[in-house]
Amino acid sequence: MEILMAFVIGILFMSATYLMLSKSLLRIIIGTGLLSHGAHLLILTMGGLKRGSAPLLGEHAEHYTDPLPQALILTAIVISFGVTAFFLVLAYRSYQELGTDNVEDMKGTEPND
């Protein structure tokens, strides 16, 4: 499973990078979204997959999966939500102000007031 996940993560990173290298602002944002999914899965995979039950002491299990990556990812998910929202509004506003979604066209644009 870990090996399969390694390839899935690689493909997520690849698509994310390709999207981020494009010129459309929206595609860049979608790219960052994919990138964070890839990163989260990477952290989880590094900690080992399915090595015991969910990290709840109520399960009374012999082994538990590693709780630390999960805590880190939980933080990362919420942060990436905040960042994506910020990006999104930035894109939305610059589209309103500049009338373009193309980052190359925005280069060196002065505010119009």
Binding site: E2, M5, A6, M14, T17, Y18, L42, M46, G48
Partner: peptide, 20 residues
């Protein structure tokens, strides 16, 4: 762009495999 993104994907896969 394609080359770079494939490169990034490959490196990340290699890292994930090595981490395991």
């Amino acid at each position: 762009n394609a080359l770079i993104s494939v490169g990034v994907g490959a490196v990340v896969t290699a890292i994930a495999l090595s981490a395991h």
